[in-house]
Design a protein around this nucleic acid. Structure first.
Ligand code: NAD
Ligand code: NAD
Lengths: 220, 220
DNA sequence: TCACCCATGTGAAAATTTTAACATACGCCG
DNA sequence: CGGCGTATGTTAAAATTTTCACATGGGTGA
């Protein structure tokens, strides 16, 4: 809270802060100490005024005439985004998506600690993915409670998603990243974001259909 | 074009049309012939007025007092979204994400035909995933041209993404679904959507950090 | 020290998107 | 056959988000 200047800002701002964070990491790695909103925007295809406004919701991080100190802004964004701590996460569904997520080491680097993967397939239980054990789905309740898991990734078939979500929430999970193509119904104090890959492809198909005659570009 | 009534509508509308489409498929499977915007919205957590407005950009599909004929609206949405034809797609990067996408059979059912997967790892070339061959990345140009590929999924490390995108576009691809965590710079007649999983997790982390004192709910 | 450059932070305007409200039309039932 | 309940399509208002424009203040170099 401390860092928030205004109480109201676009939902999209948070997403962009994450982009800024990553771009700044990259700059930092390349030994760049300072960046202007203009330069950062160029990297990300985002207007400089948008960046300045986004940041202004949280504080005054830049120096007029100079731009932003990369390391300092990184530290601030880390704090704002809640990345200055560890998050304990479980994955439900040890299928293709679950495995991809479990294998992605950058999550650990960012502080997302994948504590376990749960599945109800006997053949998968007992194995592990990238060092993370696959446990029986029936034990998920105890595990979440005992390990104070706050976040979960749902990577089970659509038909099972709502039941899994309910169980997770009942056990204490309050944030969910959902890959199943259904709108999960949840209590309003549970944060849930969905990733819908089919929809992305279909949106591309739409744009393709109309890009041929270029009308979308003229009229959208 | 034929089906479009207005020339200007929210970008988010297309995404929602895809949700409507899927929800209607589900209703259809369950033998339901007719649905109201209210009922459909309930399923998807979307306000009924939003649904009616979205549809109204493209035509008059409902019957007053009655609602929408599920099969008819499905047919119309299929046409609008460009799903009444086959799309030829290639995947670049036979890693975890590439494999997950190649293994997801629902894409084929929707008309997205995964023609090939490309990788530059000798050990992977020659194998196949879910019946789709993994081919040498160096051949991608010829393949895309010969098979008139229009869409591509980029699932290579961030460092390689821009080069891959450039090559794809040069070969004739005009729509890209990008999983690499970089803002790919493209000619404006190329459609590109990105899926950024890290950003999703970070956004959840943000909301978690502030949901504790519930301020986000009051002030957002 | 002062003048000049530069890029921030911000308040106001513009653009976009969502929500509300209701007149309109459809079908059913009596 | 006409009135009634119902849910659409639409118009207008509200809310949200982006963009613009510039006054402001920090740094640099003469
Ligand atoms: N793979 C993709 O590219 C892709 C694309 C779009 C959407 N999705 C969605 O993502 C989700 C996961 O996809 P996937 O390809 O990884 O599926 P998958 O079939 O590879 O894996 C699903 C896993 O969930 C497990 N499971 C099923 N029911 C369960 C339950 N009740 N409790 C615990 N585990 C259970 C299965 O044993 C399996 O291991 C699905 O909802 C799918 O529709 C995937
Ligand atoms: N796995 C995840 O859950 C996850 C999460 C967030 C983001 N991502 C992003 O998605 C992308 C793919 O991730 P992944 O986990 O599948 O990676 P991965 O390492 O499993 O697979 C990458 C594949 O790309 C191939 N490759 C590398 N350079 C190439 C080139 N120039 N041409 C052709 N092929 C090349 C590699 O041989 C490998 O097979 C990455 O950009 C990653 O940052 C993945």
């Amino acid at each position: 809270m401390a860092r928030r200047k205004k109480y109201k800002f676009p939902k999209t701002t948070i997403e962009r802060l994450s982009y800024y964070f990553r771009a700044l990491e990259d700059l930092s790695k390349r030994g760049i100490d300072t960046v202007s909103s203009e330069a950062l925007g160029g990297k990300l295809n985002i207007k400089s005024s948008q960046i300045r406004k986004d940041l202004s919701y949280f504080g005054d991080f830049g120096k007029r005439g100079m731009g932003y100190d990369v390391k300092y802004l990184l530290k601030e964004l880390k704090y704002i985004l809640g990345l200055d701590r560890e998050w304990s996460v479980v994955i439900v569904g040890a299928g293709h998506i679950g495995a991809a997520m479990a294998n992605y080491d950058s999550f650990e680097k960012r502080g997302f600690n994948i504590a376990a993967i749960f599945d109800n397939d006997e053949k998968k239980i007992g194995k592990e993915i990238n060092g993370t054990p696959i446990l029986p789905y029936d034990n998920i309740d105890d595990f979440v409670k005992q390990n104070k898991i706050e976040m979960a990734i749902i990577a089970v078939p659509a038909a099972a998603a709502q039941a899994v979500a309910d169980k997770l929430v009942e056990s204490g999970v309050t944030a969910i990243l959902n890959f199943a193509p259904v709108a999960v119904q949840l209590d309003e104090n549970v944060r849930c974001l969905s990733v819908d890959l089919t929809t992305k492809l279909e949106a591309l198909a739409y744009y393709m259909s109309y890009s041929q005659d270029k009308l979308w570009k003229i009229y959208s």
